[in-house]
Nucleic acid binder design. Structure first.
Length: 560
DNA sequence: CAGACTAGCCAC
DNA sequence: AAACGTGGCTAGTCTG
């Protein structure tokens, strides 16, 4: 059963059961305590409803504090975005108000701008404006049900409604998980983080100063150049190197490594530590960690490929060194589940290449391919990644030749996606997420074709080809991860909560981290494996391709 | 002087 | 090894 929900500003709301057609919709009722009403439904036994609401990130944060977790939802804005994208209208306004306006042939309002997160203590003065974009006088719940019915019709008309419905469901489930993870937070030991920083950088300096180790390195760098140089300034570094007779194209680490001069190791060390200090130093710790938790603000579907982004806090780029600060609570444990080699496995599954699929039936796909590359697993890996990323230079060319001979259907799959991209067409993931159309500028540039403009046109076309080549793989890998996360979310609800409620606390592209009472770690691991198996069946039916999980049960994420 | 842009490195 | 896809984030630098 589906229930449409509209929240009011006082914690209440209106609900309406949604029937198979408009005339069978149930009665409308008003509740003073929306969280309580939702909880009643979720606890009632039997199948929980699918809540239909305008946007999970507007409605759910206020529910999640009080009610038990919601099982399922349909997020109008996220589904609208997927449907628009399918029609080549990527990026058009997707709010309930925008969808309603399109449905009624009215002027489409732009989406409200989302405020950037600014740390662990959101600014109370900026608290929640009214984000509805419906015209005055239009009933919100009526509009919600109309747009929902329209979305259901649009999905039903697609060539493969079942797949797209799965995409809509897991995108929405992801939105639930994102709100829950932001609420629960990643267990974060500020004292351990501080110790890691002190170990690398020395004691914390007073505000605005370089930490002792960085200050010392900066001084030695200037001495080595024989002049004052700010190592944070690429321009100054290039000049200083030029004065020594080294004309560098950039100051990237791998360029510096080619230079034979005593200043280079100092600079490389400085860059590494400076990055640690500026991106994840004491300033970050104060802004983002409160009460022993790091609470990232996830942006579901924030990346064209369907991967998530985060707003502030850099949650998807936590450096390996800092992961030592992620430590389970006493008597609890972290379980990190990493799906290994997802992208080549996805390629094997979606291309229908039997030979590659057979190799993807093993735990180490690259090792299985190594025999064709003189026994060199690393070369097999580079070759396969090159095929999916569109790399042509470097060592890739002969490896690609070998792959094209051994796995023609797999290579044809990505080559075809690249060609369609170069021609300005759309490509789609397995479940139907669709890449953005080329920009008007792209069309103008590539439509040209006289003399000097040919180079630019060909380059832009090849760039888009690399993008679409990768899109069909990366976007399908992202939805594999979403289906998996949704299955894990369901699985968590079935675990014993007698010693505390196990939680999903972190998600990063192809990796999930759970925080669970230690006594139920074994059953959680078992649940994860079952969820991965369920995901394979839901996505690909019967396929020899396997998606093995690398599971680490650890106290500290740094040990995973 | 605020905002836009660039260079560079982090993650997958 | 370093022209290979998706991003976020910071300090330095440019611009109006």
């Amino acid at each position: 059963m589906r229930i449409g929900v509209v929240a009011d500003k006082e914690g209440g709301g209106r609900l309406r059961e949604i029937g198979p057609d408009r005339s069978s919709d149930g009665g409308l009722w008003r509740v003073g305590d929306l969280a309580g009403a939702v909880a009643d439904y979720e606890n009632h036994g039997g199948t929980a409803p699918r809540w239909v609401w305008a946007a999970t990130d507007e409605v759910y944060p206020r529910l999640v504090e009080r009610s038990p977790r919601v099982s399922r939802c349909h997020d109008i804005a996220l589904v609208e975005s997927l449907l628009l994208g399918y029609d080549g209208r990527f990026g058009e306004a997707r709010s309930l108000g925008a969808a309603w306006a399109r449905l009624h042939g009215r002027d489409v309002p732009p989406d409200p701008v989302t405020r950037a997160a600014d740390g662990a203590d959101p600014h109370p003065a900026l608290f929640e404006p009214d984000r509805s974009t419906l015209p005055a006088g239009v009933d919100r719940l009526t509009a919600l049900l109309e747009v929902h019915a329209d979305q259901q019709r649009r999905i039903a008309r697609l060539p493969d409604p079942g797949r797209f419905a799965l995409l809509a469901a897991v995108e929405s489930a992801g939105a639930l998980a994102a709100v829950e993870m932001s609420h629960d937070g990643v267990p974060w030991r500020a004292d351990v983080h501080d110790a890691v920083l002190a170990e690398h950088l020395g004691p914390r300096p007073s505000h605005g100063m370089r930490p002792p180790v960085l200050a010392g390195l900066a001084e030695r760098i200037s001495d080595a150049f024989g002049r004052p140089v700010n190592p944070d300034s690429p321009a100054q570094l290039l000049k200083a190197f030029a004065a020594l007779g080294h004309r560098l194209t950039s100051t990237r680490s791998w360029v510096l490594k080619e230079v034979d001069h005593p200043v280079v190791p100092l600079l490389l060390r400085y860059k590494e530590l400076s990055r640690l200090h500026s991106a994840h130093g004491w300033g970050w710790l104060e802004s983002w960690v409160r009460g022993g938790r790091f609470r990232p603000d996830y942006v579901v579907g924030g990346v064209v490929s369907g991967r998530w982004a985060t707003r502030g806090g850099g949650a998807l780029q936590i450096p390996k060194a800092i992961r030592r600060a992620v430590v389970a609570d006493p008597d609890w444990t972290l379980i990190a589940a990493d799906a290994g080699q997802v992208e080549p496995r996805i390629l094997a599954a979606v291309s229908g290449d039997d030979a590659l699929a057979a190799a993807a039936g093993s735990d180490d796909l690259y090792a299985r391919l190594a025999g064709s590359f003189g026994g060199d697993r690393q070369r097999a890996k580079i070759g396969l990644l090159a095929a999916m990323y569109g790399q042509t230079g470097g060592d890739a060319a002969p490896l690609l030749h070998t792959l094209r001979r051994l796995y023609p259907r797999a290579l044809h799959h990505v080559d075809a996606a690249a060609r369609e991209g170069e021609e300005g067409r759309l490509v789609r993931s397995w479940l139907g997420r669709t890449c953005p159309p080329p920009s008007g500028m792209w069309r103008r540039v590539t439509a040209g074709g006289d003399g000097a403009e040919d180079d630019a046109a060909a380059r832009r076309a090849r760039e888009r080809g690399r993008f679409t080549r990768n899109f069909v793989i990366q976007a399908t890998a992202a939805e594999w991860a979403l289906v998996f996360m949704a299955a894990v979310r369901r699985g968590l609800a079935g675990l014993d909560t007698g010693r505390g409620v196990p939680r999903l606390v972190f998600f990063q592209h192809d990796e999930l981290v759970l925080h669970v009472p230690r006594q139920i770690a074994d059953s959680a691991v078992e649940m994860l494996r079952a969820a991965a198996e369920e995901t394979r069946a839901l996505m690909f039916g019967s396929t020899p391709v396997r998606f093995p999980l690398d599971i680490a049960v650890v106290e500290c994420y740094g040990d995973a």
